[in-house]
Amino acid sequence: MKDDLNTLFDNYRPELGDADEYMERLQQKIKVMDGVKHYADAQRRLYRRCMLVAFVTGIVAGALAVVYLMLHPMVPTEKMSRMVLWTIELRPVLTALMVVLVSTAAAILLTRQPETESSFSRNTP
């Protein structure tokens, strides 16, 4: 379908400069960007590893705490305040709650994308 606009746009040939020079500059920029990308990838891997360690440590420490509390039950005495007695009574529940909180926080941090990665992928199909 040829029309008058076809001719107008066909004749649109603005001077764009040397293609080789342009490509050379682009490849230099790509090299720099690659460096940044590799650094961001390494940072992301380090971040994930740290979070994994935190996650496992939380689970293990929580489990050990529960086992310790079960093996060494505290005997309430009359000198203890009501608050302490209440804590002793509820300690398995409180420990379990702490384990769940630490694990959830670590799991959320593990699945969250670091900022560098999300900014790279923004607006690209």
């Binding site: 682009l26 790509i30 960007m33 992928s121 607006n123 690209t124």
Partner: peptide, 27 residues
């Protein structure tokens, strides 16, 4: 072009490269 390079792993060959570039350029 830099965004295209950074997301080049996601480029699907069944689309024309120019169409893919246009999409990025448009965004």
């Amino acid at each position: 072009l830099i965004k295209a390079w950074l997301s080049s792993e996601r480029y699907v060959e069944r689309y024309k490269f120019s169409t893919w570039l246009c999409k990025i350029a448009y965004h």
